[in-house]
């Protein structure tokens, strides 16, 4: 069983952030990431930290979500910081400072992406991206196809995880032991999961292709959308506030 919530999983909800247009959330996140990178330590970075923490609270997806999905990344941050302390050439006090500096930035950047992913469903995220990238269509860039591939992959990943778990369980009840001590044997046992999984995946891909074709899907065409994305005053406020924070840090 997959015990933790997956990294960057969408948590359905109805907070202010959930209701924003995906485009403004993407723009906001980009500003936060760029701003954090270019901010001066510690005051400016601190301002960004405060901003993302407030956003985290506004997202109403629960502290546990951030904690659980950040856990694997916390190791990364800690290791990076550890090497910074160990290998940098400055004095010890300064080294700690530098480590904290780096760790903090990484934390803010990851956290802001978490806010985005946690409050935006994959579907609205991709349709927002498509809208934002649509100017590229003028230079014949296959935006629609690219986004379709992204959407399908995002849609199918949870299914594969489910298939994986289910087949693994089915093989476990046939007495296959995935906790085997010898690594070679363990890998060999995983073949019994991989083969059925591949078969199911191919079958699913074929089914999907048939289904799309029977609905006359043709890639980019005169396609309309059920939910038309629309900026609301809140979106302008959101971008305005985050942009404002950025401007303040630049001015500082």
């Amino acid at each position: 069983m997959v015990k933790n919530i997956g990294l960057g999983q969408y948590i359905p909800g109805n907070s202010i952030l959930h209701r924003l247009d995906p485009r403004s959330k993407v723009i906001g996140t980009v500003i936060l990431v760029v701003g954090t990178f270019t901010s001066a330590y510690p005051v400016e970075t601190g301002i960004f930290l405060g901003t993302v923490l407030i956003l985290g609270a506004l997202s109403q997806v629960g502290i546990r979500y951030y904690f659980d999905s950040l856990k694997p990344l916390l190791y990364l941050i800690l290791i990076t910081a550890f090497f910074q302390v160990l290998l940098a050439e400055e004095e010890l006090g300064q080294r700690f400072d530098a480590a904290l500096n780096l760790g903090l930035r990484l934390f803010i950047i990851i956290f802001s992406m978490q806010v985005l992913m946690g409050t935006t469903s994959p579907l609205s995220l991709t349709s927002g991206m498509e809208k934002m990238l649509s100017p590229l269509k003028r230079i014949k860039f296959p935006v629609h196809e690219l986004i379709m591939i992204m959407t399908i992959s995002l849609r199918f990943i949870p299914l594969y995880i489910e298939d994986w778990e289910r087949i693994k369980k089915a093989q476990m009840s046939r007495g296959i032991n995935f906790e085997e001590k010898s690594i070679i044997k363990r890998l060999k046992n995983y073949i019994s999961v991989l083969i059925p999984l591949l078969r199911i995946s191919f079958q699913r891909a074929v089914d999907l292709a048939t289904a799309m074709e029977s609905r006359c899907y043709q890639g980019e065409g005169e396609r309309s959308h059920l939910n038309v994305l629309k900026f609301t005053p809140y979106d302008f406020m959101y971008i305005g506030i985050i942009g404002g924070v950025w401007l303040i840090t630049i001015w500082l």
Partner: peptide, 13 residues
């Protein structure tokens, strides 16, 4: 305790 899953044919490899 042998458990036959729903659609056991899936597990054939």
């Amino acid at each position: 305790v042998g458990l036959v899953f729903q659609f056991p044919e899936e597990q054939i490899f």
